[in-house]
Every structure is written in structure tokens, then in C-alpha cells.
């Protein structure tokens, strides 16, 4: 999409401009399109949260417990606690949305044609949301009270 220069807002002449915080006398800006702003902001917040979540995940799943110990029973025990379920649900959500946001910006950087952009973004959202949904379904609907698998 080309850069559009919107005409001067008609209200500007009537309304005296408000003073803002960032300069003592400057006009207060009001962005019309907030999606890019919030996605940028979300990027930063989710990035910081992911750092905490992913590191905790790494420590719990790979350092304290090694791969040999992790089995169905281990998972069943963890997900018996709503705390861990919430933790994993959040990790899933943040990792996927953060990642999707990143891929979205890559598509904007490298795909110029409008049609291809729509196509790529659609594929991204469909795949992303699909994984988000089945991931969430597993975490939410998992029944920790099922008997454990018979040992081999």
C-alpha cells in the first residue's frame, strides 16, 4: 500500500490543539491507525514475557529434569496443577502470536504484491490459529485423572 497523505482534519481549525506531555506546548498526536502501534508494543511486551516463560520452561523441562524422566506420567502430574496449565497455555499463546507477528512483518518487508500479501498473511493466520487452537485444546481438555499407560 502506498503512503497516503490524508487531508488536514476539518476539526483542526475549530478545536484549539491540546497540550501534551512530551513537549510543553506541542500538539497532542492522535494516531488514526493503531494496529501497527499495538502490534509493535505487543512485540516488546510479549518478548519480555517470553524471555521469562521460555527460560523457566527450559530450566524445568531440560535442566532440572532431563528428557529420560519426562514421560506421560510426568506430564500428567504437571498438568494436574492449574498453575502449570496456565503457564503452558500462556507460553503457547505468547510464542505463537509473537512468532506470527514476526512472520507478518517479514511478509510486509518482502512481499510487495497485494495479492501475494493477502495470500501469505491468510496462510500465516490460518496455520497459526490452527496450531493455537489444537494446542489450547490439548492443554485445556487434558484429563489428568486417566490411568497411566501400562509400563512396558
Amino acid at each position: 500500500m502506498a503512503i497516503q497523505t490524508p487531508e488536514r482534519p476539518k476539526t483542526a481549525l475549530k478545536e484549539p490543539t491540546k497540550r501534551s506531555r512530551w513537549t510543553r506546548t506541542g500538539a497532542r498526536p492522535r494516531p488514526t491507525n493503531a494496529f501497527e502501534l499495538y502490534s509493535w508494543y505487543f512485540f516488546r511486551v510479549s518478548g519480555i514475557l517470553l524471555l521469562v516463560f521460555a527460560l523457566t520452561h527450559l530450566v524445568v523441562m531440560h535442566l532440572i529434569n532431563n528428557v529420560e524422566v519426562i514421560n506421560y506420567d510426568f506430564v500428567r502430574q504437571r498438568w494436574a496443577s492449574p498453575l502449570w496449565r496456565t503457564f503452558d497455555l500462556l507460553l503457547l499463546f505468547l510464542a505463537l502470536t509473537h512468532g506470527m507477528n514476526g512472520v507478518r512483518t517479514l511478509i510486509y518487508d518482502y512481499v510487495q504484491s497485494k495479492g501475494w500479501r493477502v495470500f501469505n498473511i491468510s496462510v500465516l493466520y490460518i496455520v497459526g490459529i490452527f496450531f493455537l487452537l489444537i494446542g489450547a485444546q490439548v492443554i485445556i481438555t487434558f484429563n489428568p485423572n486417566l490411568p497411566s499407560l501400562p509400563a512396558k
Binding site: A2, W22, P29, N33, A34, E36, S39, W40
Partner: peptide, 23 residues
């Protein structure tokens, strides 16, 4: 950032579009 200017909202409207400042 010029205290004499009153056009920030018009400029920010341009810069907040998808090909604006967030690229």
C-alpha cells in the same frame, strides 16, 4: 517535536500506516 507546530496528528496519521514508522 517543534513546540510551534500543530500538525503532529496529521503527520502521525501518515507514520502509523502499515508502511510508516513501524516498518
Amino acid at each position: 517535536f517543534d513546540s510551534r507546530d500543530q500538525g503532529s496528528d496529521e503527520r502521525i496519521a501518515v507514520l502509523s500506516q502499515s508502511e510508516g514508522v513501524f516498518r
